[in-house]
């Protein structure tokens, strides 16, 4: 059985996590799909004082001699899942970043070429009339 003070602390911690996450989503600094896991974590902490006695019973019944070990196990598994999701996201983002970087480099090269061609054309051409009746050619 958990003493009142630790219960209160866990409850406060859960509430803080929930508020923090909700506020970050509100300010659009955290995307909803990443917020869900953290909201779940915050909710679990907030409700922990209520279901911990029940969890202790459950831990005993499936053979844990030290019930908090089950809690820690669940916490570790949860964190591993979170980290795993981040690894997946990083892999995908690195792939995207690579393509964007390559495209950007190639585009900059093309733009520099076009700019040079335009400069050459302007150097060669006579000063254009102020109002041209023919639209510019596009390739």
């Amino acid at each position: 059985m958990m003493a009142p003070l630790p219960r209160l602390l866990v409850f406060a911690l859960g509430l803080t996590v929930l508020l923090l996450v909700i506020n970050l989503v509100r300010k659009r600094q955290l995307q909803e799909r990443y917020a869900m896991l953290w909201l779940l974590a915050g909710l679990a902490l907030t409700l922990a004082p209520v279901f911990i006695p029940w969890l202790d019973h459950f831990a005993f019944s499936i053979g844990f001699e030290y019930p908090p070990a089950l809690l820690l196990l669940l916490a570790v598994v949860g964190l591993l899942l979170l980290i795993f999701q981040l690894s997946l996201t990083i892999s995908r983002d690195e792939d995207r970043l690579k393509i964007l970087t390559q495209e950007l480099g190639l585009l900059r090269h093309t733009v520099a070429h076009l700019q040079r061609a335009i400069d050459d054309m302007n150097d060669d051409a006579l000063p254009a009339p102020a109002e041209s009746t023919t639209p510019p050619d596009h390739d």
Binding site: L97, K98, T101, Q102, L104, G105, L106, R108, H109
Partner: peptide, 8 residues
């Protein structure tokens, strides 16, 4: 020259 903005 094709310059990549970051090191790939």
């Amino acid at each position: 020259v094709v310059s990549l903005p970051v090191n790939l």
